Each structure stands twice: as structure tokens, then as C-alpha cells.
Amino acid sequence: MRLRLRLFEFEDLSWFPAVVRAGMMDYLHFMISALGTYRPIVPLLAEGLRRSGQPHLLELGAGAGGGTENLLIALRAQGQPDATSTFTDLYPQPAAWAAAARRTHGLIRYEPAPVDALAVPPHLAGFRTIFSAFHHFPPAAATALLRDAVRANTGIGVFEGAGKHWAELLLAVTVLPVAQLLLTPFFRPFRLSRLVFTYLIPLIPLCTIWDGVVSVLRMYSPAELLALARAADPAGAFAWQAGKKRHWWGPQVTYLVGWPVSSAQLAANPEPLL
């Protein structure tokens, strides 16, 4: 699918009720973790950590932190025994993050204050990642986000849990809403508000359907991701790769990764991989 539309998503709106946003993030966290959505990009992420000399992930736009716990386990199996992560977001989710920190015995930490992904504070170091959220940024902001990583001389990985196909739109309006209604009572930690706004006043499922469809329509293709990277890094200080990785059961992950390289490395491998 080549179509890319700049429609709004409810979770981007500053006035959007926090309780509904949290319910949507809980669902996204559950599905990404249960389906192992980002398992295919673990080797890419491990390579990024090695090449940038960073054992620590700095997750931008973390939402409820879906899938990171499983990724850390997989990274440790990929030769990154010291892999840890810090969650950040413009709209922090400290309750969900604190639970993740407890479950991982401190391997996951979090920044309780809002963090702008376009201007990350210097005290927050690490290989930057952004999962299921890069499509929220229009081209100028997306370029600024990548440029900030280049300026900080830190590696970055952008990952979207879809391949931008029409079938994904069909899933977003059929199978996934049914799964949300069936699985919501099992989400932890338990929140009465989640049940109220799912079953009595169904704002969470309705807004999830809209945002899910719009997310696919707003996604950047690998070629567009590389164009954004080149605009953010005109001097070629980073090596960039973009493409898609297929999960064993079918779905794809679209990605862009970049890390600082020496002049010698650039001369040996001048072209990014698409």
C-alpha cells in the first residue's frame, strides 16, 4: 500500500481523557507482548547496540511499554547480557511502567516527567528506540526526531508493527476489536475504569479501531524512512538501514535503524540497505 494519509489519532490529542488513553495503551501492550510482534527485529536491535557501544535502550513514546520485557530477554540471548531499558513518553504512564520495573527487578526504568522525543534531555542516554509510534510524527517532526539522535551521536531504531497492507486494515476493524472485547477482563493490573470505558461506554474499543486504521494509513514506507534519515543526516555521519522483517506467522515489522560510523566504515559501506 503506497497511500499515506495525515489523519488524526485520538491518543495524539492533548485533551483526550487520560483514562481512555491508558486503556488503549493497555490493550496495545497486551497484544504486542502476547503476539511477540517485535521478535523479528531482535537481531537488528542487537547489532545496533553493538555498533553504537550502548547496552541500554532509551524508549521514546513508550506508551504502556508493550513488548520490551520480552525484547530484553531476547537481546540477552543475542549476546547483550547487560541490556536494560528506560521508558519515556510525552504522556508518561508511571503506573504501568512501575509494574514493569518491579517485574524485571530494575532492568526496566522510567522517566516520570514528560519527554519530548524531538529534544531528548542530555541526561537520558542510550540507544534510542521508538515502537509503534513513529507514524505519529509528520515529516518535519520525524526528521527532527532523527536529527536529535544524530546530534547526540547515539544510535536509533524506529519500528512499526505492520507492513502497511490492506489486510491489516481489515484486521483492525474485524478480528482485533473482537479480541479486545474478549481479552480486556484479563489485562493486568486490573482497572475498573478499563471495564467501564470498554463495555458500558465503549470509548476504548471505538477509539482503538479508529487509531488502528489511521496508524496503518500514516505509516512511512522503508523508502520514505530512508529519505527522512538522509534529510536528518545530510553529512552522512550515521549508517542507515530500512526495510521489513516478517514474523514467522505472517505479519511484518517495518524498520529504520541507524548508528554513528567512522569515516573508514562509511568508505567501506557507503550505501544504506533498503
Rank of each mutant, 00 (worst) to 15 (best):
R128S: 12
L200W: 02
H123G: 05
A117R: 06
P112F: 09
Y110V: 08
A152L: 14
E160I: 09
F197I: 01
P189I: 01
I108Y: 05
F137A: 12
R188E: 04
R147G: 13
W166Q: 08
A167V: 09
E111A: 12
A149L: 10
A179D: 01
L124R: 09
H135L: 12
V120A: 09
L146T: 08
F127Y: 15
F190A: 10
T184H: 01
A149E: 11
E111T: 10
A144I: 08
R151K: 11
F134N: 04
A141M: 11
L183N: 08
F134M: 13
V175R: 15
P112H: 11
T184C: 06
L118D: 04
A162T: 13
Y110A: 03
Y110F: 15
L171T: 13
G126K: 09
L170Y: 13
A142I: 11
I108N: 07
T143R: 15
G106E: 12
V150F: 07
L171G: 01
F190S: 02
R194A: 02
A179Y: 06
A149V: 11
L145K: 04
V115I: 14
F137E: 04
F197R: 00
F137I: 04
G126D: 06
R188Q: 08
A142S: 14
L200Y: 00
A141C: 02
T154G: 10
P122V: 09
L118I: 03
L176W: 13
T129C: 14
D148P: 07
F127S: 04
